[in-house]
Every structure is written in C-alpha cells, then in structure tokens.
Amino acid sequence: MTMPHQRMDAFCRAGEILVGIVKTMQHMQIWGAELPDRLVSEAEEALRHYPSWLELRDAADDQRSMHTWMVRVTEDTQQQDDAYLKLLEAVERVGAELASDGARLDTVGYLQAWLETEHPALGYRQPVELLFTTGNPEGIVELFEAEHSVAREAKRVFKTEGVAYGWLRSIRSSLGGIPFEMLGSEAGRIKVMDELRRCAAAEAIRMARVAPIADRAAHDAGRTNLKGK
C-alpha cells in the first residue's frame, strides 16, 4: 500500500534525479559513467518547468505543512544556533513538567532522541536533517512545542498514553488526515486542538448521561441487598 507521503517523496526524488543528471561533473561518481549529452540536455529542459518542493507541498497540502518550505538553504548559522538553544529551553520546560511527577529528564539526551526521530509533520524526516539546512529553523522549535502540547492534551482527554498516541498517529475522518501530520502548520495545530476539545466535551456529555444510570443501578442493587437480609 502506497501512502500519500510516499507518493510525494517519489515525485520529489524524481526531481533530485533530474538535478543529478544535470550536474555533469558528478556523473562519474554518482552513475559510474558519463551520461549522454542528450539525456543531460532533456533533464535540464525538464527542470526549467519542474515545480520546487515548496510548490509541490503547497499543492499537496492546503494546510501548508512544515515540510513545504524545508528545501530552502540558509547560511545564517546564528539563526540555526539560536534555534538549537530554543529547542534546549523547550526541552527543559518539558523536563520541569516531568520533574513535578518525580522524574528527572536528561535534557540533551531527550533532545538528541527527538532530533533523530522521524516526524510525520516533516514528511517523515528527522529534524536533525533539517535544523541546519532549513530556511526557517524556528519552525523546528514550533514543531517540538506543538507535538508536546498536543500529546499532553491528548493524554488528558483519553486518560492513557497508549490511547492518546494511537489517536494522534491514525487517520481521523473528522480531521481528514493524521493529527501528527498536521502539526507543521498553525492551521493544522488549531484543527487538532479543536478536535481534542470536541472529544473531551463529547466524553463529558457521555459521562453525564451514564452517571445517573450507574447511580440508579447501584441504588437498586443496594435495595435488593437490604431485602435479602
């Protein structure tokens, strides 16, 4: 079964191959042989009208998921360093929450693991691959904070971590997608949080309806026991 993100990755990979063909100086190293001039010329012509990753992601995801603009390269190392420091600060805030539960967090280790994990909102790429090449490293910080906030809310709504992450990783018809894939955009994050609040409200209504029935059943059971005595 081919997933949408896999089809998109294949399309983007085709563009990378065209670029590789045009870079004639690398032919011997990449392909093991010189390529025909006609092939190089046709690849170059195709690239004149080939959409950028930004245009591809924009067309595929009207929520402008984060990976729509991840292909732009920046040489602003100060911006990258600032983003990394902000990530550390965000992890420390997570650690402070965990510490309140009696657990201590290895901040650097936690961040390293997060950076080396594939994230749906990044097109199932690792943040470490993008932090120092993206034109907007601040987006990586926003993603970390969004994932943590949404996961915390999901655990509050669904009571257990397993159910919460199961909900976040599966397709939700009410959202038209997978919640974790939608966290790369502000619009997507708002939709996911709104849906979690809707789920919480629905559960509260359900419990309000169930509680009187349960109370009545318990009362009837108590009366039955008294009669038995």
Rank of each mutant, 00 (worst) to 15 (best):
Y124E: 09
Q78H: 15
I21P: 09
M25N: 14
L47H: 02
Q126A: 06
N225G: 09
W31P: 04
A202M: 14
H5C: 00
T134C: 01
E97W: 14
R7K: 14
G135W: 02
A146N: 04
D76Q: 01
E186I: 04
I178E: 02
R197D: 15
E92Y: 10
I171Y: 15
G166M: 10
R13L: 04
A103H: 14
F180A: 11
T160L: 03
K227A: 10
H49C: 12
Y124W: 03
A103P: 01
E161F: 02
V108N: 06
E16N: 05
R125E: 06
I140N: 01
G166I: 05
E195K: 01
R206V: 10
V40W: 10
P36W: 08
R72K: 15
R169A: 07
A10P: 02
R197T: 14
V210C: 01
L130G: 06
S170Y: 00
H67A: 03
P120S: 07
V19C: 04
H49Q: 11
H49W: 12
W167C: 06
T77F: 14
E145S: 05
S41M: 13
L105E: 04
W53G: 08
A202Y: 12
L226E: 15
E161M: 03
R216G: 03
A164C: 08
A218W: 07
L105T: 08
A201P: 10
L18I: 01
E195W: 13
S174K: 04
R172Y: 04
Y50T: 04
F132V: 06
